[in-house]
């Protein structure tokens, strides 16, 4: 038994070392394994401008795409990138931003976990003289004064595009199911936009009926269950609008299981790789594209402008774009959005 305890202690120690190493490497690019590189990095970091990226989660491909954009801009500009994954926890995110400030970042690309609780993070940056570009999840209006710039998707526009598609393809009306993520403000705006898109483009909007709203949690498995239940209740559903492509994949499967393939039009959002593939396979009809990578990319460039002492436009909305079977061939199925490079 004593031996067993020793072994266990060793294992535990090993695990801790391993996990620490893992944390270290994910935190900052400059921390490489070999000591040589470390020294190089140290010298470099003396001159290199550090940029912080604070998303609210990275276990979501959308935010990974934002990160890609941020990374690409940093590479182009020769900045060093520092980022963390707070795993959707506001407190953790605030602590991580504090750590970044301590590491000497000059600018921060910030996606608040909770827009209502962003003020303390913004204040900390302001106090430290760090430029903050808020992207994607927009902060509250009364906090604008603490922020240097905002880049966001046009959530309403995203929904509107999908609404327009429905209006065009179902001129005689449709029974519509919404696979929602009701806890996300952006999704609420998004769904509002969807209805506006329909109403603005048809004469008689009374024929477009919301038969049910189900909670899909933005996840494939949850949406699958919820949509299959809803299809039982309402076999007459014509259109399913999903608040992202990930949940649309669950809806596709549920429709297939109900033997309704081809009879129900499924619309997603994001024009994510998986969504675009589904459109090219004819399983999904439309997805409104967002530009997460562009957003991250532009965020870093705005910081570079600010660092150079230039003025920037405070509030930039990135336009949504429509992806459906007619134009799917124009897009790269494996990537999110293509970044429009600034210095090329």
């Amino acid at each position: 038994m004593k031996n067993m305890k020793k072994v266990f202690a060793l294992l535990l120690a090993a695990t801790m070392v391993f996990s620490l190493a893992a944390c270290g490497s994910s935190k900052s690019d400059s921390k490489s394994d070999s000591s040589e590189k470390k020294e190089e990095a140290k010298e470099d970091s003396g001159d290199k401008v550090k940029i912080g990226f604070a998303p609210y989660t990275l276990t979501n491909e959308y935010f990974s795409a934002v990160l890609n954009g941020v990374q690409e801009a940093c590479d182009e500009l020769g900045y060093e990138l520092v980022y963390n994954d707070p795993q959707s926890d506001s407190t953790t995110q605030a602590q991580q931003v504090d750590d970044m400030i301590a590491q000497g970042i000059s600018g921060l690309v910030y996606i608040p976990n909770d827009s209502a609780n962003a003020r303390s993070v913004l204040q900390a940056c302001k106090d430290a003289g760090v430029f903050v570009i808020n992207v994607d999840n927009v902060i509250k209006e009364d906090d604008y004064e603490l922020c240097d710039g905002i880049i966001a998707s046009d959530n309403e526009g995203l929904g509107r595009l999908s609404g327009e598609w429905v209006a065009k393809n179902h001129p005689d009306g449709a029974n519509i199911l919404i696979a929602h993520l009701q806890t996300a403000e952006s999704c609420v705006v998004n769904v509002d936009g969807f209805w506006k898109g329909i109403k603005e483009n048809v004469k008689d909007d009374s024929k477009f009926k919301e038969v049910q709203v189900v909670e899909g949690g933005g996840a494939t498995d949850v949406t699958y269950k919820a949509v299959s239940d809803a299809l039982s209740a309402h076999p007459d559903i014509d259109v399913i609008y999903c608040i992202n492509d990930t949940s649309a994949l669950g809806a596709i499967q549920a429709v297939e299981d109900a033997g309704l393939t081809g009879k129900v039009d499924i619309l997603g959002k994001d024009a994510a790789p998986n969504g675009k593939k589904a459109i090219s396979e004819g399983k999904m009809v439309q997805s409104s594209g967002q530009c997460p990578s562009q957003m991250g990319y532009d965020g870093v460039y705005e910081i570079s402008e600010l660092l150079a002492g230039n003025k920037i436009e405070f509030n930039v909305a990135i336009d949504a774009y429509n992806v459906d079977k007619d134009n799917i061939d124009d897009y790269d199925l494996d990537a999110w959005d293509e970044i429009t490079h600034k210095n090329k």
Partner: peptide, 17 residues
């Protein structure tokens, strides 16, 4: 209370899920 609850297809869906 619910129209389409007690149908063979719904019960099958429910069990499968």
């Amino acid at each position: 209370t619910t129209k389409n609850y007690f149908t063979a297809s719904n019960i099958l869906t429910m069990l499968q899920n």
